[in-house]
Each structure stands twice: as structure tokens, then as C-alpha cells.
Amino acid sequence: MVHVLSSRVLLRPTDPERSRVFYGDRLALPVYREFGTGVERGTVYFLGGGFLEVSGRSDTPPSPAVQLWLQVADAASAHEELRAKGVEIVRPPLKEPWGLVEMWISDPDGTRIVLVEVPEDHPLRYRPGM
């Protein structure tokens, strides 16, 4: 069995500084750590129970098959805040047939990000024995 101690998503953006502005300033993700120097430095952000590392550089944007899922407390508030910061809103918050409220945005390289609100009555909030 593989005993995983920690994990993170790695992004290799086409423009690292532009992506750091997006994730650090516009999404206001808190920084866990930074390493290296200059424009090629790496930045690791907190993502709730995980991490997002923006480091290195890629000549091509990521595959559309790669998407991020971020849970937020209030999708409507996130929508207003991000729209005011100039973040591209791909789709405003909508309640899905499966009960989650989802809003879609896009990072500078086109990586799709879903911001998800889990309503109080949704099964994801149910914990057996609690």
C-alpha cells in the first residue's frame, strides 16, 4: 500500500507570473511556501485540504481534461468577489440536478475551475454516526 503523506496539484503555466497574479491576487489563495527566485520561482498555495503548486513553465497550455474542483462556503459571494476582480466567469452559480451549486471560472491558461457550494441538506455533508 502506498502511504500518502501529502499531495498537491502541479501546474506548469505558459506565463508563471500571470498565473501567480491570478491565483494569489485574484483568487486570493493563501501561500503555503515559495521556492527559487525570479520569474521561474515556484509558489505553493493552500487549497483547503490540498495544495496547488504553480512552478516551471510550459510552452503549451494544459489539457482541457485537467480541471480543478474548489469547495467554497458561498458561491454567490464568490461570484460577486471574483467578478469585481476581473476574473473570467465561464458560468455563474447554478444549482445542479445533483444538488450542488457550481460556478465555473478559467485561469489565464484556460484551466477550468469549478467553485462548488455544498448546501446544508446535501448528502456530502452527511457523516454516518454524527
Rank of each mutant, 00 (worst) to 15 (best):
H3Q: 14
L5T: 13
S7Y: 05
R8P: 00
R8Q: 03
L11S: 05
R12Q: 12
R12I: 02
R12C: 08
R12K: 12
E17M: 09
R18I: 01
R18C: 03
R18D: 04
R20Q: 12
Y23C: 06
G24F: 10
D25G: 01
L27H: 14
P30N: 03
V31G: 01
V31C: 07
E34R: 14
E34Q: 14
T37E: 14
G38H: 13
V39A: 14
E40T: 11
T43E: 01
Y45Q: 03
F46R: 03
L47Y: 01
G48E: 02
G48L: 02
G50K: 00
L52Q: 01
L52A: 03
L52N: 02
E53G: 07
E53R: 03
V54Y: 06
G56K: 03
D59E: 15
P61Q: 12
P62E: 07
P62C: 06
P62A: 13
P62G: 07
P64Y: 08
P64E: 14
P64T: 13
P64F: 11
V66A: 14
Q67G: 04
L68D: 08
L68V: 13
W69A: 12
L70I: 15
L70E: 06
Q71N: 10
Q71S: 10
V72I: 03
V72C: 03
A73V: 08
D74S: 08
A75L: 02
A76P: 00
A76E: 12
A76S: 09
A76N: 06
H79L: 02
H79Y: 09
L82F: 04
L82H: 02
R83S: 06
R83W: 00
R83H: 01
A84V: 00
K85W: 04
G86A: 05
V87M: 07
E88I: 08
I89K: 04
V90P: 04
V90N: 06
V90F: 08
P92A: 04
P93L: 09
K95Q: 15
E96G: 08
E96W: 03
P97S: 12
P97W: 09
P97Q: 07
P97G: 09
G99F: 00
V101G: 01
E102Q: 13
I105C: 08
I105Y: 06
I105K: 07
I105E: 03
S106M: 12
S106Y: 05
D109M: 06
G110K: 06
G110V: 05
T111V: 15
R112T: 12
R112P: 00
V116Y: 02
V116M: 09
V118T: 15
P119M: 11
P119G: 14
P119H: 11
E120H: 08
D121P: 09
H122A: 11
H122G: 12
H122I: 14
L124V: 13
R127E: 15
P128D: 07
G129C: 11
M130R: 08
M130K: 05
M130D: 10
